[in-house]
Amino acid sequence: MLSAALRKEALLQWRGLARTLAVLAFGGTALLLFSFAGGPDSGALREQAPGYLWLALLLSSTLALSESFDGEQEQRALEGLLLLPAPAAVLFYGKALANLLQLAALGSGLLPMAVVLYDMPLPRPWTLLGILVLGSAGLAAPGTLYAALSARARARQTLLPLLLFPLVVPVLVACVKATSLSVTGDPMGQLRSWTLLLVCFNAVYWPLCGLLFDRVVES
């Protein structure tokens, strides 16, 4: 069932590829703008690069997430989906996994831009990819839940970031720290504890949001 839900979401995202590319372009613009805020001093830019990269991904994620329930909203398809003999949690995990994939892809697209713009070295690309996936997972679980709820509220463009940003402060902190440790080297072995924090965040929010999603859509 989960694979069916995931396949549906992935298919929809593939068909909406133009939209994903537009979000990527938005993230790239944000990266470009951050370099104007950080000044042309390339040393300072290189130091701040992990922070800018994650901020750009966070800002783009609200665009990607807020559209994830558009299809259901336009055709009133959510009611139809809920009538299927599948628990609502399956629908949630399908959407959340699809959002996780989309955010990770977005992050991998932004990464080369950050490397070029900020002269960010990449000594451990696989570690960085792991952080990217963990961080995207941390954004995707509460993000999907809040997208489901703000899609049906007024002022949803304001509401989603307002609810999501304070919540994902630990994800942002952990991802920025872990990214900069993986870039500049990790003499104290701190990378492990930041990764652990990300794993803990995901271990709390993936089950919790799946549990609560049921209540959000049935009301």
Partner: peptide, 17 residues
Amino acid sequence: VATIVAYVDVPIVYFSV
């Protein structure tokens, strides 16, 4: 739902900061 989700975050935010 949002209150529960936000409240669970308190210890995680505390330790991350």
